[in-house]
Simulated assay, not measured.
Amino acid sequence: MEELKEQGVKGENYAALHVGDWTGLLEKGHQTETGKLGKLFLKELLGLTGMEVSIGVMPAGSQIPFSHSHIENEELYLFIKGAGQFYIDGEVLDIREGTVIRVTPAGVRAWRNNSSEDLHYLCIQAKEGSLQQYTATDGKIIDHPFKWPEK
């Protein structure tokens, strides 16, 4: 059994990587006026071809220093831990662990951490309207017996 390391492992049909703990993302981040933001984009690291995924950590009291929209990609934000606020098209939504938000390409967005703990989130970008098959319509059961390795 191969342990995932930062350099990752690749097979014919997969790429896997251990990016470290969430707080370690702050070391890979960039400095803004309100603090250091940790964000790691996975497209290049994993060879993603149909989406971009980023893992983010926003320290207490920090915020995205700009609002933005997209040309073709919708985004899905999944807030994993912490709390804050999400700005979208002039509205401010309170966010916390378990909040999920889809934003169309035209939506103007930004977010901040106005809590006392780190805000952890995932962001998935994909071309709006490109999903043709999903869940059961794209999955198929394979008759391929396997055995889990012993610990």
Score class of each variant (00 low, 15 high):
residue 4 L to G: 00
residue 7 Q to S: 15
residue 14 Y to D: 10
residue 15 A to L: 07
residue 16 A to H: 09
residue 16 A to Y: 09
residue 20 G to S: 05
residue 20 G to W: 09
residue 22 W to K: 00
residue 23 T to W: 07
residue 24 G to Y: 05
residue 28 K to T: 06
residue 30 H to T: 14
residue 31 Q to D: 15
residue 31 Q to F: 05
residue 34 T to L: 07
residue 34 T to W: 01
residue 36 K to C: 12
residue 41 F to N: 07
residue 42 L to R: 02
residue 44 E to I: 04
residue 46 L to G: 12
residue 48 L to D: 07
residue 48 L to A: 02
residue 49 T to W: 01
residue 50 G to F: 00
residue 53 V to H: 13
residue 53 V to C: 13
residue 54 S to F: 10
residue 56 G to C: 02
residue 56 G to E: 01
residue 58 M to L: 15
residue 59 P to I: 12
residue 59 P to S: 09
residue 59 P to A: 07
residue 62 S to M: 04
residue 65 P to D: 06
residue 66 F to N: 07
residue 66 F to L: 10
residue 67 S to V: 15
residue 70 H to P: 13
residue 71 I to M: 13
residue 72 E to V: 12
residue 73 N to R: 02
residue 77 Y to K: 09
residue 80 I to K: 02
residue 82 G to H: 03
residue 89 D to G: 10
residue 89 D to M: 03
residue 89 D to C: 08
residue 90 G to N: 00
residue 92 V to Q: 08
residue 92 V to P: 03
residue 92 V to S: 10
residue 96 R to W: 03
residue 98 G to F: 04
residue 99 T to N: 09
residue 101 I to D: 00
residue 102 R to C: 11
residue 105 P to C: 13
residue 107 G to C: 14
residue 109 R to E: 10
residue 111 W to I: 05
residue 112 R to D: 05
residue 116 S to W: 04
residue 116 S to Y: 06
residue 118 D to S: 11
residue 118 D to P: 09
residue 119 L to E: 00
residue 122 L to S: 05
residue 124 I to L: 14
residue 126 A to R: 13
residue 127 K to G: 11
residue 129 G to A: 06
residue 130 S to F: 01
residue 132 Q to R: 03
residue 132 Q to T: 14
residue 133 Q to H: 01
residue 133 Q to M: 06
residue 137 T to M: 08
residue 140 K to W: 02
residue 140 K to H: 03
residue 141 I to V: 15
residue 144 H to Q: 15
residue 146 F to K: 00
residue 147 K to E: 13
residue 148 W to D: 08
residue 149 P to S: 13
residue 151 K to W: 10
residue 151 K to R: 12
residue 151 K to E: 13
